[in-house]
Amino acid sequence: MFKYLLFAVVLLYNNVTTANDYFKALELFNKKKIEESILYFKNVANDLNNEKRSDAMFNIALIYDNGFGVQTDKTRALYYYEAASKLSNKYALFNLGWMYFNGDNVNKDVIRAFNLYKLASDFGHPRAMYNLANMYFSGTGTVKDMKMSYKMFLKSKMNGISESEFYLKKISETLKPEELNLLNAEFDSLIEKKIALPSSNQQ
């Protein structure tokens, strides 16, 4: 399972209507003026009316989590990941899930990790879909469920996670033909987009 990282020039440029402080923070970050960029990110994070609040919180967390130009501070990173997660930031939800899954500066809690990945997945995070599928596949943090695992691997494949193909094929070999057909029928739109779906070899 992978932790979601965003570097320098790809730090969440989402909306051109964002307040100037957010873009100023990004500009300073890319110039490696990290301490100054954090101050601007904090201005945005503290502005209750700023639509970029959760992105600013996530970026602060990312800086401290990875030690981008500052001393690594997992406690601060956790604080800002949690704050951004409360605002439904899918990237923060994913990284927080990763921390709980791996026990990174928190007590390992695979059930909480599962729930966080589920939320991130619901908000459209592809890697969260993949990790969630793996947890259903292995029964980690939840009840083992091959059908749900198949669905989530299919969703992650649809969203560009190529590793899902291996598991889709593996699971398809364990399902009855009628079960596989029912699962695939839920994804007719994928077939229309010419994304190949596994078929059962069972007779």
Rank of each mutant, 00 (worst) to 15 (best):
M1R: 10
F2N: 15
L5K: 12
F7N: 08
F7K: 09
F7P: 00
L11F: 13
L12I: 02
L12H: 09
Y13P: 13
T17G: 12
A19G: 10
N20V: 15
N20S: 12
F23H: 06
A25K: 00
L26E: 02
E27F: 11
L28E: 01
F29H: 12
F29W: 01
F29K: 03
N30F: 09
I34H: 09
S37P: 07
I38G: 01
L39S: 14
Y40Q: 10
F41S: 03
F41Q: 01
N43W: 03
V44K: 05
A45S: 08
A45K: 02
D47E: 08
D47T: 05
N49L: 12
K52R: 14
S54G: 00
D55S: 04
D55P: 00
M57N: 02
F58S: 05
N59G: 00
I60M: 05
A61C: 07
L62Y: 07
Q71N: 13
K74N: 07
K74R: 13
A77K: 03
A77F: 05
A77C: 01
L78K: 06
Y79N: 06
Y81N: 01
A83Y: 00
A84Q: 02
S85H: 06
S85I: 06
L87W: 04
K90E: 10
F94G: 02
F94A: 02
G103F: 07
G103H: 15
V106M: 10
N107L: 14
V110P: 03
R112D: 08
A113K: 01
F114C: 07
N115C: 05
Y117T: 02
Y117V: 04
A120G: 08
A120L: 11
S121A: 11
D122T: 08
F123A: 08
R127H: 14
Y130Q: 06
N131H: 10
N131V: 07
Y136D: 01
F137Y: 12
G141M: 01
V143P: 05
K144F: 08
K144W: 08
K147T: 10
K147I: 10
M148H: 07
K151N: 15
L154I: 09
L154V: 09
S156E: 09
S162G: 12
S164T: 03
K169E: 15
I171Y: 02
I171D: 02
S172L: 03
S172Q: 00
E173L: 14
E173R: 14
E173T: 13
T174M: 09
L180I: 05
L183H: 03
L183P: 01
A185R: 14
A185H: 14
E186G: 13
S189N: 11
K194I: 12
I195H: 02
L197Y: 09
P198Q: 12
N201T: 11
Q203H: 11
